[in-house]
Structures are given as structure tokens and as C-alpha cells.
Amino acid sequence: MSGDVRDRVLALGGLLQATSMVRQIAGNGETDNACLTASIESVFRLDAESPEAVYGSANRVGRGLRVLLQQLEGGGADPAPARLAFTILQVERRFSAQPRMMDKVAGDIAAIDRQREHFGPTHPTVLARLGELYSSTISTLRPRVMVQGNPNYLAQPEVVAEIRATLLAGLRSAVLWRQMGGRYWDVVFARRAMAQAARDWIKRLP
């Protein structure tokens, strides 16, 4: 499966939505529930028909698309979400090279999906199980994804679980980025085209 620059930009928007939320959760213990719902639900859409279907609609990653555009255009944007995203892209390369781990993650997500259907995607039980899955699989890969924030929140198990679940959502978007033909050098050599694609998506948002 491959896509054009618009598909790749949408995937990066999903990734940056996740990493911006990780920063927010780690800093103040909470984030926008609609954005969190969209990101967590993307984890369970492994066989979506299109990149947009992974998120339900482009509207649901509007936050991430705006963060991406800020990063591409500069202008004093917080660099932390982009740094986290870059690390997740590196981790995804190692994850995609391990078929056994990929099978385990897919199988566990299918099992957790039954709880998602019963409780909802952002229920603490669902986030805890996704967090455990991330901890037992993705967090063993290098480079480690290091999250900085308020120690008072980072000491709370439910906050840590939410962060890990959101990082798993970020990995889902990184996988989509690669499937759509994304490459590291795109951010350097296709920066202008990516920024225009992000603007085009944002113009469609309500």
C-alpha cells in the first residue's frame, strides 16, 4: 500500500497529534478527550480502507495537522512533539523488522478491542491494557522514547498508562506513514509540498 503526499501528511498529523497529547498529559495530567478518542481508536483500525478511515475523518486529527504545519513553517513552535515523533519513527523501523512482535501486538489489540467495544476507547481499563501492551513490546525497542513532564503526574499509574497508550497510537500513525511511502528525507526535500498538503487538509476542517 502506498499513497501520495496528502496521505503521508495525514499520517504525520496523526503522529504529531499523539506526541502533542503525550506532552500535555505528562505536563498537566489531562488532554482533549475528543483528540484522545480519535488517536486511541486509530490503534484498532488495522485494516482501514484508506488513511483517512484510520482516524475516522481528517477532522479528528485537525490538532495534529495544525501542529505539523507549525513545525514545517517554524515560527517558534514547540519542538518537543516533533522530537518525540522522530524517535517514534525510528522505533517503528525496528518494530516493522520484527514480525513476531508485530503479530503479538496485532493479536493483543484484537483482544483489547472487545473491551473497547464494551467500555469505550478512553476507558481506564482499555488505556491500561494498551499501556501494558506498549510496555511489554514497543518499549523494549531502541531508541527508547523518553517522556519528560511533571513528576507528580508521571508518578501516577493511570497517567503513565494513558501516555503509553497514546504512544502506541503514535506508532500506529508511524506505521501508516511508512505504508504510504514516507521517508525521513521527505521532511527535508519535500517540506514545501508537505506544508501545502497540510494547509489543504486544514482548509477542509470545520
Rank of each mutant, 00 (worst) to 15 (best):
P99K: 08
I40K: 03
E158G: 03
G131Y: 06
A26C: 13
A195F: 00
Q90R: 11
P79H: 15
G56D: 07
M194C: 13
L10T: 03
G13M: 12
A198W: 10
D47C: 09
Y184F: 09
S39W: 11
R66K: 15
A111M: 08
R114Q: 01
V67A: 12
R204H: 11
A82S: 15
L10K: 03
S57W: 00
A18G: 06
A155R: 14
G29A: 15
V126A: 07
V9W: 04
P81Y: 07
G56T: 08
S135M: 02
A128Y: 12
N150D: 13
S96M: 14
R192W: 08
R183Y: 07
D113K: 08
G120M: 05
R129M: 14
S173H: 03
N59L: 05
A38R: 00
E73A: 13
V91P: 04
L36W: 09
L205W: 08
L15R: 02
F86K: 12
V5E: 01
E117T: 01
L167C: 07
Y134G: 01
G76M: 12
N28L: 15
V188S: 05
G170C: 00
Q179Y: 08
L84Q: 08
G107N: 08
G131C: 05
G75H: 06
L171A: 04
Y184G: 13
A161K: 06
A53D: 13
P99V: 11
N150V: 01
R142T: 10
Q71N: 15
V67R: 14
S20A: 13
I40M: 07
Q98H: 15
T31E: 04
Q156I: 14
F189E: 06
A197M: 01
G74K: 13
A38D: 05
D200C: 09
N59Y: 12
T166L: 08
R164D: 05
W177F: 03
V9C: 03
F119W: 13
M194E: 12
L12W: 03
G120A: 11
Q179L: 07
T137W: 05
A195I: 04
